[in-house]
Amino acid sequence: MKVLVPVKRVLDYNVKPRVKADGSGVDLANVKMSINPFDEIAVEEAIRLKEKGAASEIVAVSIGEAKAQETLRTALAMGADRAILIVAEGEVEPLGVAKLLAKVVEEELPGLVILGKQAIDDDSNQTGQMLAALLNWGQGTFASKVEIDGDVAKVTREVDGGLETVSLKLPAIVTTDLRLNEPRYASLPNIMKAKSKPLAQKTPADYGVDVTPRLKTLKVVEPAKRQAGVKVADVDELIGKLKTLGVVA
């Protein structure tokens, strides 16, 4: 079974995002960019499936500017076998990404696509579900456990009330939650090896997909700032403050 893993290049999660003064967006000039953390978990899960013999080949895909190559090399260094970069200038929305991925799926015929549950830049949490809809496949979102048994995937999902397990007929879509696994670090030899792994370059036009955005960003602002409050010296003073606020009687 082939596994497809879409990975997005995003602002590194350790960097504090800064809103641009002109209100057009978040400043991404000269800041550290990394693979979306949930996608790193997706790559790791694919590698584990391969190590268990449930997957045969792992193909990483990214849609974005040419620099998204670096993100794909990260996936290759972790253990993906080859990569596809669909170069697109400007932002491609989840709907456009899902349409492109559906075309890649038509060509590659994977048994499973593992995506992150959410990109930590747009926080959309949509692409996997949209891809499942376009392909008319089952979806196991927010996964904390994935088991492949023949042509069925059993997926445990992190839901608001706790955990839920669903079974999906393969091929299917899985999106990762934080506790699915802990991604490995790529070793230096593997980073070197990744440089010579195949990376194909495409454009949305190659797939005949129109990725014109449907949402227009009118402006981006900083959220209202909270004022830092007061420090209290001890528990008694804390309780006093809580009483003033009417929190405790």
Binding site: V26, I120, D121, R214, L215, V220, V221
Partner: peptide
């Protein structure tokens, strides 16, 4: 809507 973990608030207009 919030983006970047709520560190920015975007106003978006839908053409759908």
């Amino acid at each position: 809507r919030p983006i970047y973990a709520g560190n920015a608030i975007a106003t978006v207009q839908s053409s759908d």
